[in-house]
Amino acid sequence: MSYKVTEEGNISTVFLNGEIDMDVTEKAKEVILPLVEAGKEVHLNLKDVSYMDSSGISVLIESHQKALEKNTKVVVKEVSKSVLKVIMMAKLEQILNLE
């Protein structure tokens, strides 16, 4: 997994790339959670994420819940078809902010 972060005002956009599994979830959390902790609105762009398992879904849930605590939000954007399938299997499409 690789990533890129861009900043515009209070919005941080994290572009994740590759496959998100248990091996990389700590790295993903290290990138995302400090931004949420800082009160940023975080946009997770998953356009280039080709695979995500339950560990990756856990990162999305944890980020979303942390954002609610901090009165901000995490928006999940440009989800690839295969990742959307996993999100829907977990019945999270109504919980996460998908765009």
Partner: peptide, 8 residues
């Protein structure tokens, strides 16, 4: 977070 692997 967690507990979804077996569900999948």
């Amino acid at each position: 977070p967690g507990g979804l692997g077996t569900f999948f």
